[in-house]
Design a protein around this nucleic acid. Sequence first.
DNA 1: CATTTTTTGGACCCGCAAGTCCAATTCTTG
DNA 2: CAAGAATTGGACTTGCGGGTCCAAAAAATG
Lengths: 218, 218
Amino acid sequence: MDHAGQKWDTGVVKLTAKGMATRNRIIEGAASHLRSDEPGTMTLEDVQVITGTSRGQLFHYFPGGKEELLLAVARHEADQVLEDQQPHLGALRSWSAWERWRASVLARYRVQGANCPLGTLMNAVGSTPGAAEVSQSLLARWQEFIAAGVREMQTSGEIAPDLDAERLAVALITGIQGGVQMLRVTGSSDHLETTLDVLLDHLRSTNRAVLASVPAIE
Amino acid sequence: MDHAGQKWDTGVVKLTAKGMATRNRIIEGAASHLRSDEPGTMTLEDVQVITGTSRGQLFHYFPGGKEELLLAVARHEADQVLEDQQPHLGALRSWSAWERWRASVLARYRVQGANCPLGTLMNAVGSTPGAAEVSQSLLARWQEFIAAGVREMQTSGEIAPDLDAERLAVALITGIQGGVQMLRVTGSSDHLETTLDVLLDHLRSTNRAVLASVPAIE
DNA sequence: CATTTTTTGGACCCGCAAGTCCAATTCTTG
DNA sequence: CAAGAATTGGACTTGCGGGTCCAAAAAATG
């Protein structure tokens, strides 16, 4: 048994530069289909047409079939989520930095609109261990960035030091997830924006007792 | 209720008592399958086996086929979500009532665990107008209950009157949705609990300034 | 009763989409 | 260049699952 933990490692034993290019083309083609009108129905033939590949190639580069392909796309998309928030997410050292981060999150999801690529992927691939791993990894990294930001604000005295940074990071991540969910359902980013603002206001307000006054957003 | 322009009205022209019973049996059987181990793969034959019905009956009571059946189940589940929070959700008139409500929400979702019936349904039925209608109706009713609670607390002076009740209701609904999402992904209700508590703390804290300046009115 | 309507059973059809197979071609490498 | 390895193309198989059809049984109707 190959209990190396993973079902398929890199997918293929050996890859030339050309092969690598094809593999990436497949992943990005599939990803682009998730942003089309009908992302729910992504068939392997769809991927073939978009990427101009043959059936043989699909299974050559993703021996695990559709599930392996979807997971690869999911990893790609998950990394994209964090990248779209950089460099702001990695440098939450001032209120204006938080503000820029907030704007980047809103912008990203406004562009994305009602169909969430990662969400589509996750329910397409179902509840396999691989899927859970991708989600949890993304959320953990995301949460850690935010918690680090809160801690930095605490050391610089802009957030009350007795607050639990992890706790606030959890609430922010959860609020964003909820906001994205609402975006999927209603098509509007209002819920996301409001929730984000309520939580950020909360962050700032914890500071009012410490500092004399705090400039409000809005 | 049923506007003209619906694809299927009540599903069937005429229903005897026996017919009604069968129809309900089908809906509840399907609903019960959503709580089983493998809710993602609900085939019509699964429903037949669970409910002891024939193929003819399924299409007799749900002429629109699988989609109509799933939407009927979704409506059933959506109503259940609100009912599970009653009577607390409808009477958010004191902090202890809010506390009881919080407990009922957490209890409900802890029991539900990682597989969310409504979530499964919504991505099974895809992004049809009917699906959106069910979700949005649930969320709107839910949000209105909470906003009403906030307003009642404002009139009784336990929440600062200058706050926007709708805004806070939006944040709470969104936070809950996010928490449920995290529950689906991680299997733990910690995110839901934390986010709910952060937001409720926020609600309570808005009151401190008022209480400090106008102490103990009761 | 007789008749009409509703309810039930289940065989059958059909299309879709994942996955297999193998041969042809193009690259790498000694 | 020749041998081996990687890449590519596409026809074919297969199973699953939604939907159709029709006829038999049961129930309402008058």
